[in-house]
């Protein structure tokens, strides 16, 4: 468990209902700064809903969610958008890159939305692509990149605004095993330099390699939590 003073994420009695089902039922959870938490569970267990709520993509039916000191329940739609822009970075299973934009422009986009000039945003994007080892592919479009490369571009985009929390939804789910390994290494590296990480995955290997804590969600409830001994 985590110490409240040091927590980046704090969920208290969070419940999320859809018209015909309960996706999360009274979930309370804390994530400390620098922690890497993996959420696992069967399909439909509520793990993606949990991620969406923490990312401010959706609102809970009841309960409170505080991320980096901001109570998401207090935020308007615009407030949530600004929160997503500044506090969190998101990595999706299917990358969700804009097909019309080059790798560099996809990464720069996240900063440009905040009003950063195109030149500054591109400089920062190039640095990130360089750090992730794909600077040479910066002018290619998503369709011209491999799955692993696309996900690296997506990771770079997620890191563009230096988020307090990196959220990943099945980040290796659409990748072959080699690309998946590379992304796992990347996430591990990021966590080791202090990036707080919350990832949702079916992949036990990914969870074990990257996470310091694994939470099992079943039927919308936290069924178990296990701390892992992590060996870099």
């Amino acid at each position: 468990m985590t110490n409240d003073d040091n927590s980046v994420v704090q969920l208290t009695a969070v419940r999320k209902e859809y018209s015909d089902s309960v996706a999360l039922d009274g979930v309370s959870l804390g994530i400390a700064a620098g922690e890497a938490v993996a959420v696992m569970g069967p399909s439909g267990s509520g793990k993606s809903t949990l991620l969406n709520l923490v990312a401010g993509l959706d609102r809970p039916t009841s309960g409170s969610i505080v991320v980096n000191g901001e109570d998401l329940g207090d935020l308007t739609e615009k407030g949530l958008a600004l929160f997503r822009r500044r506090r969190v970075g998101m990595i999706f299973q299917f990358f969700n890159l804009l097909d019309d934009l080059s790798a560099l422009d996809n990464v720069a986009l996240a900063a440009q939305l905040t009003g950063t000039s195109a030149a500054k945003a591109r400089t920062r994007a190039l640095e990130l692509l360089d750090e992730l080892g794909i600077a040479g592919r910066r002018n290619l479009h998503p369709a011209q990149l491999s799955g692993g490369e696309r996900q690296r571009v997506a990771v770079a985009r997620a890191l563009m605004n230096r988020p307090a929390l990196l959220l990943a939804d099945e980040p290796t789910g659409a990748l072959d095993s080699r690309s998946g390994e590379q992304v796992m290494d990347l996430l591990l590296d990021l966590n080791q330099i202090g990036q707080t990480l919350l990832l949702v995955t079916h992949d036990e290997r990914l969870a074990k390699q990257c996470a310091t804590r694994v939470i099992h969600v079943v039927d919308g409830r936290i069924a178990s939590t296990s701390d892992l001994e992590h060996t870099p």
């Binding site: 600004l82 997503r84 500044r86």
Partner: peptide
Amino acid sequence: RRDLGMLKAIGMTPRQ
């Protein structure tokens, strides 16, 4: 729809 969802997810405001 997908692009719009992604743009909103990375912080595009409703006004934008």
